[in-house]
Design a protein around this nucleic acid. Structure first.
Length: 338
DNA sequence: GATACGTGGTG
DNA sequence: TCACCAAGTAT
């Protein structure tokens, strides 16, 4: 009888939140929710989940859509490779599996955008395979419970956590166990303001015993953010705006934006009017963007051949754009109306 | 194994 | 203002 597993499942049965993807066994819906929730809070992802289900209630509709339509719905969520990989994945499942997701962890792991966590989530939630999920919640909760002081962003530490939960899940309903351990991590064993007072594991928690709850999980230093300078050029003829498709590797791949040129330092243009300067913070870059109003897009831009014209309304309805673009358009529109 | 990849919320 | 982080994956 495992204290750990019995306690978390007992707690979850009483305290688990009701969320739409917990009310279904449909692999498509579970897959959709799991991709959306990667590195994303429930409150941020929930509206997107509802939106996608409304537009694409099943895998076939999703697979038959164009990638740009998927990206348009995804707009604003970030980590856009998730949307691109989902589209690849949907078409692959449609083509190679007759529109039905494969049912095992090993097969799911082969699909685009599905890594160890998501494969375990779909296999356990949709198909009752006894494979434990290891996400940020699990890492935090288990490292505290066991008092692991080694960096959790190390392979060896991760493997020991995985070994522990894979043993604990044995003999329990895998979907229940996995939901329970993640819910405990997100609602009780939180990163800050940890709710140890209402934790059913507290009496056996090593971090609590040693007063290390606020020190664990320990992470070795992360990479620092780089500063970048983007210059965007806004050219308007009649109601038509110049736009380009980002084909390059790197951020915002396959999204649309105004013609742009990067500079080494903050730029000063002489033949353009500055509409505004915008700070955009990413996890790994800090971008200072300047939006310049010009009569004609400078011919020196490398992307020159890819420029096309489109009405503002069309951008809003059909062209996926990143949040910096949305920010710039909004500021420009507000200037025009005053 | 380290790094790139978004966005918005929190203390 | 700023560091940290939220149901990770690909390369």
């Amino acid at each position: 009888m495992s204290f750990f597993s019995n306690e978390i499942i007992g707690w979850y049965s009483e305290n688990g939140r009701s969320l739409p993807w917990r009310e279904t066994k449909d692999p498509y819906r579970i897959w959709l929710s799991e991709i959306i929730l990667q590195q994303t809070r429930v409150s941020q992802g929930l509206p997107y989940y509802e939106k996608f289900i409304k537009h694409y209630p099943d895998l076939n509709g999703f697979a038959n859509a164009e990638e740009t339509d998927i990206l348009k719905l995804w707009q604003g969520l970030g980590y856009y490779s998730r949307a691109r990989n989902m589209h690849k994945c949907a078409r692959l499942v449609q083509r190679d599996f007759g529109g039905f997701f494969p049912s095992t962890y090993a097969q799911l792991l082969q699909l685009p955008g599905i890594g160890p966590y998501t494969a375990a989530a779909i296999a356990s939630f949709a198909f009752e395979e006894s494979v434990a999920v290891v996400d940020g919640n699990v890492i935090r909760l288990v490292s505290r419970y066991l008092g692991i002081q080694e960096p959790v962003n190390k392979g060896a530490t991760l493997r020991s956590i995985n070994t522990y939960v894979q043993e604990e899940i044995q003999g329990f309903k895998p979907d229940l166990f996995n939901q329970a351990i993640m819910e405990m991590g997100s609602q009780i064993c939180t990163p800050k303001l940890t709710k140890c007072d209402s934790c059913v594991l507290a009496m056996n928690c090593q971090a609590k015993k040693e007063g290390l709850v606020n020190r664990i999980p320990f992470k070795s230093t992360r990479t620092k953010v780089s500063q970048k300078y983007f210059n965007y050029y806004l050219s308007q003829n009649q109601d038509q705006l110049s736009l380009v498709h980002r084909n390059s590797k790197g951020i915002w791949q396959n999204l649309y934006e105004f013609p742009m040129e990067e500079s080494v330092n903050s730029k000063v243009e002489s033949n353009a009017t500055l509409i505004g300067t915008f700070q955009h913070q990413l996890s790994h870059q800090r971008i200072e963007a300047k939006l310049w109003k010009v009569n004609k897009i400078p011919s020196r831009l490398s992307q020159n051949k890819g420029i096309f014209e489109v009405a503002l309304g069309e951008i809003g309805s059909a062209y996926p754009t990143h949040q910096l673009m949305n920010k710039m358009i909004k500021a420009w529109q507000e200037q025009l109306t005053k």
